[in-house]
Amino acid sequence: MDFSLILFVLVLLTGVVWALDRWFLAGARERRANAVLRSGGTEEAVRRASKEPVFVEYARAFFPVILIVFLLRSFIVEPFRIPSGSMLPSLHIGDFILVNKFAYGVRLPVVNKKIVDLGAPKRGDVLVFRFPGDESINYIKRVIGLPGDRIVYQGKKLYVNGELMEQTPAGAFGSQQGGAGSPEAALLIENLSGVSHEILVAGRPDHTPSEYVVPAGHYFVMGDNRDQSNDSRFWGYVPDENLVGKAFLIWFSWDASGPSRWFFDQIVFERIGATIR
């Protein structure tokens, strides 16, 4: 379900109803009320004649609210919820994030056509995009390769244009963390061309092709949970027209793992307000 399209339709419907009432229906009601008044009608009869229909009242009340939400969500910032553990340890299941919608240009809502170019993704950005295999689904991954880059992933090591991206051991990451149900994995800090971020690497062998050349106008993306991520290694590259925005903030976090608990026990307060790196 395309929420942007739903909002657009609601803005259109409520706006049309409000405009028609303002320009035509309100005047007709006023003339009708004046006619009732001149004919000696009671105050109640005049009030009923001038009363706006319920659907007009709701349209007038909701139109500005829906319009503001639509504009903010389409051009400024959009909220998303993290549904899987593919970006562990950076993002946990149940994290609610904010995405900068104009970081990579201003795009028309619904049709997703770029009208103003304000920049391009940088290596290391955490990117939200429409999945090329099904554009009704939004994915979130980290940008690894830019147009023209040669990417090699071999033996759990990442090479960009022949340069090894240094990995530093940082301990272990257990399945109890982040509510992801992930297997025991090594926690590493990877230096991605100057952008340091944490990744998870399990002991399983690689079974995917290891070398990729990013075509023009496309990006190569990977999840930080390297062995639990469905990313460019399996389905290819992200075209520029599929970009949604850059993730930058965790505004809420909810840990629903394990047995049902009291509401406030499931809020992960220490993650609220954390920046996404």
Rank of each mutant, 00 (worst) to 15 (best):
L71C: 10
K114T: 10
F129G: 00
D265T: 09
E166F: 01
E52K: 15
P239C: 09
W251F: 15
K246G: 05
F24M: 15
K157P: 03
G124W: 07
K122V: 07
G194C: 08
A45E: 15
F96W: 12
F131G: 03
P183V: 00
F102Q: 00
L12N: 04
A19V: 14
F131P: 01
V152Q: 13
A35R: 09
F131M: 05
F131K: 02
G194L: 12
I199V: 13
R38T: 14
G15V: 10
K157S: 13
F102M: 10
P89M: 00
I6F: 14
K114H: 03
I66F: 09
A61K: 02
L72T: 11
S136H: 07
Y104K: 01
F220Y: 14
L13M: 12
I140S: 04
D95S: 04
E190G: 08
A61L: 10
V54I: 11
I137D: 00
L10F: 14
D255M: 13
F80D: 08
E184A: 02
E135S: 02
E198V: 01
A61W: 03
Y139L: 07
R81D: 11
F62L: 14
S90N: 14
E30R: 15
L25H: 07
F62D: 04
L88K: 00
N34F: 13
N242T: 00
K156Q: 09
R81N: 13
L98K: 08
I276N: 02
F75C: 04
G162E: 11
P215Q: 03
Y153C: 06
T168E: 11
F248V: 06
V126M: 13
G174Q: 02
H197Y: 13
G124C: 06
R277W: 15
N34Q: 14
F3Q: 06
Y219F: 06
L146M: 11
V116Y: 04
V126L: 12
Q177C: 01
A35D: 11
T14D: 04
P209G: 11
W18F: 14
D231R: 01
L67I: 04
K113N: 03
G40E: 04
Q177H: 01
S86F: 09
R261Y: 06
L118T: 14
L158E: 08
R32N: 12
K113P: 01
F234N: 07
F248T: 09
Y104M: 05
L146T: 08
M222R: 04
L20Q: 07
V17M: 04
D255T: 08
K157I: 07
L158I: 09
K157E: 15
G171K: 05
V69T: 08
A247V: 10
L25Q: 09
G174Y: 00
V106I: 14
P169M: 11
S74P: 08
P169V: 06
Y104V: 01
F269K: 07
P239I: 02
S260I: 12
Q154D: 08
